[in-house]
Each structure stands twice: as structure tokens, then as C-alpha cells.
């Protein structure tokens, strides 16, 4: 019995989530650029958390990082022999607050790379950025925007935020692969976004169900951490990243040539891939980007985001009223 479950479990770990970039897949400039961005964000995070969190929080965050790692193993069957499981960025951000969420996710990615070679070392900056920082920014920013709302609104937004956080990570990953000269833009973006649109649904459903469970059993854990929650700036940052995802994703899928031209004009491609790399020849793979799938995808993304924006804007307009009523009671 023990050994049966044991092998089952190790095979779960071997299942490699598609976003962990291994070493060798990113060019050096792109890998270093991602490290710089990740280090800047993490430095801010460490500074902020050292002020707000005591030494008591270290065991808490360590155990909860182990929780995210373990939660990624819990899966459920989806059609066709594949299984859905959690990545956890949005859930970590919503439950722990953005600062602690980023530290926890960065730790998870570091352990996955150091202990299991799940994701590379030189590209760890990119992996932390894609799966640890972007997911938290999107997940927390959108959720924070509806903080005072009813339970069901919060859950719906949490689901959308979780879905968008996966898409943000997938988009960032495919852009890094493209800029490194490892993948063709017109293939990698629609493929990655298509696959992760499905993975993101699993992420959204699990996140919502887990949150609902915590709200039912220990609502105090989600309410009573005012100072670590972070202010309204998070909503703006989250909205900006979310908007960047929903405008870039359809653009990159439907009109890769436009995006390519921008990148070439900005000198990104030459810098990222070296002089041997030239503009993709036109005769290779025409027009994968204009398939029905990516257009539909773009439409769905657009509709979802408009919905979330409406909820958040309505909430912003009502905010002073709820604030006074809270202080009144």
C-alpha cells in the first residue's frame, strides 16, 4: 500500500509543467534581462516584508511554500489522459497577500530548479518572473480591486484572475522564447496560449474552490491581515499587466508580423539572438496566426476582461460608501 502510493506520487512529480523553462532555451541577454527584472522585484519585496513581517512569518512562509509545491501535485483527470493541477500564483497572492505571495512563489521555483532540475538555473530569473511574479501581480491586483464586494463577486474575479495569471505567464514565456530565437513567434504564441487557456481553466476552478473552502472554514485568514495586504497601487499594477496580456495576446496571435516589426525596430531581435539570426522568411509557415482558434481566443479574452473591468470600476465608484459604512459599523 505504502509503496504503491509512493510510486504514484513520484510519477506526479515527473510530470513537467509546461512553463518551467530549462537552461539552454533562452539566449544569454534575455536570461540576464529576466534575472535583472526578477532581482529588482524581489529586492523590493524583501525590503518591504522585512519591515512588515516579523521572524514569526518565516516559518509560515516556508511551510506555505511547501504547501504550494504539494498542492501542485494534487491533480484531477481532464479529457484525453491529461490532468489538471494548480500552479498556485494567484491563490498564493490572494491568501497570503502580494509580498508574501511573491516570496513564496520564488521559493517554490527555486526549490523545483535546485532539487528537481524542474526549470534551469541560469533561466531561473525568467521562471520566477513568469510563474512567481507576474502571476501574483495579476492575481492579486484584480482580486484586490473587488476586496469589499460580496463573496460571489470576489470568487468570480478570483477565478478570472487565476486564468489571466496563467495566460500572463504563458505569454511572457513564449515572448522570451521568441526573443531568444528558440521558437517562431507565429507558432509559439498561439500554441502556448491555446494550451494554457485550457490549463488556466483548471487553475481558475481549483483556485475558486479552494478559496470558497477557506472562506467557509476560516474566513478570518482572508480578512484579518490589513497591513500585509498592500494598498490600492496593486490594483493599478494588476490591471496594467492584465491589460498588457489581453492586448498583446490577440495581437501576437492574429498579427505576429506587426509585433515582429516593433521588436525589430526596437533592436530586440538582433540583441537577443545575435547577428546570425535574420527575419523569419515568409515562405515557411504562413498565417497560423489567423486561424479560427486564435481569433475565438482573443474574443473570449476580451469579453472576460471587459467583465472584470466593469466589476472593478463599479467597485471603485462605490468604494467611499462601503468604506464609511464599514467604519460606521
Amino acid at each position: 500500500m505504502h509503496y504503491v502510493s509512493h510510486t504514484y506520487y513520484l510519477s506526479e512529480i515527473a510530470e513537467n509543467p509546461a512553463l518551467h523553462i530549462p537552461d539552454g532555451f533562452l539566449s544569454l541577454p534575455i536570461a540576464l534581462l529576466c534575472w535583472v527584472l526578477a532581482i529588482i522585484l524581489l529586492t523590493i519585496t524583501v525590503r518591504r516584508t522585512q519591515n512588515t513581517l516579523g521572524e514569526r512569518q518565516i516559518p509560515l512562509m516556508g511551510v506555505l511554500a511547501a504547501f504550494i509545491f504539494a498542492a501542485q501535485m494534487i491533480n484531477f483527470p481532464v479529457a484525453g489522459g491529461t490532468s489538471g493541477h494548480l500552479l498556485g500564483g494567484a491563490l498564493a497572492a490572494i491568501v497570503l497577500g502580494p509580498w508574501a505571495g511573491m516570496l513564496v512563489m520564488a521559493s517554490v521555483i527555486a526549490v523545483q530548479a535546485l532539487l528537481f532540475q524542474d526549470g534551469g538555473l541560469l533561466v531561473m530569473g525568467a521562471n520566477i518572473l513568469n510563474m512567481g511574479l507576474l502571476t501574483v501581480l495579476v492575481g492579486y491586483g484584480l482580486y484586490r480591486g473587488v476586496a469589499g464586494q460580496s463573496r460571489s463577486v470576489r470568487l468570480v474575479v478570483a477565478g478570472v484572475a487565476a486564468w489571466l495569471s496563467v495566460m500572463a505567464g504563458a505569454l511572457a514565456t513564449s515572448l522570451q522564447l521568441w526573443l531568444s530565437g528558440t521558437s517562431a513567434l507565429r507558432i509559439v504564441v498561439p500554441t502556448m496560449l491555446g494550451v494554457h487557456a485550457a490549463i488556466g481553466i483548471g487553475e481558475a476552478l481549483i483556485t475558486v474552490a479552494a478559496l470558497a473552502f477557506i472562506l467557509r472554514t476560516r474566513p478570518d485568514l482572508l480578512e484579518a491581515k490589513g497591513e500585509t495586504r498592500g494598498g490600492f497601487g496593486w490594483v493599478i499594477v494588476g490591471l496594467i499587466v492584465a491589460l498588457a496580456v489581453v492586448t498583446l495576446a490577440p495581437l501576437a496571435s492574429v498579427n505576429p508580423d506587426g509585433l515582429e516589426r516593433v521588436a525589430i525596430d526596437a533592436g530586440f531581435i538582433e540583441r537577443g539572438t545575435g547577428a546570425t539570426y535574420e527575419v523569419f522568411p515568409d515562405y515557411t509557415i504562413p498565417l497560423l496566426g489567423e486561424t479560427a482558434l486564435s481569433t475565438i481566443l482573443a474574443g473570449v479574452v476580451g469579453a472576460l476582461v471587459v467583465g472584470v473591468l466593469i466589476v472593478i470600476v463599479v467597485n471603485l465608484l462605490r468604494r467611499p460608501v462601503t468604506a464609511t459604512s464599514e467604519t460606521g459599523s
Binding site: 516556508g62 484531477f76 479552494a210 470558497a212 472554514t217
Partner: peptide, 24 residues
């Protein structure tokens, strides 16, 4: 699939609570 995801989400929530209490 939605039902499977809900069960999984409940498990994740349960795991969170157990981890949280253990960290204490």
C-alpha cells in the same frame, strides 16, 4: 471536469489549512 476541479479545490483548501496550522 468542474466537479473534479471542485473536489481538487477542496483538497487544496484543506491542505492549506493543515499547513497553516502546522506552521503555528
Amino acid at each position: 471536469v468542474a466537479w473534479g476541479a471542485r473536489v481538487t479545490g477542496n483538497m487544496v483548501g484543506q491542505l492549506f489549512l493543515r499547513s497553516y496550522e502546522r506552521s503555528d
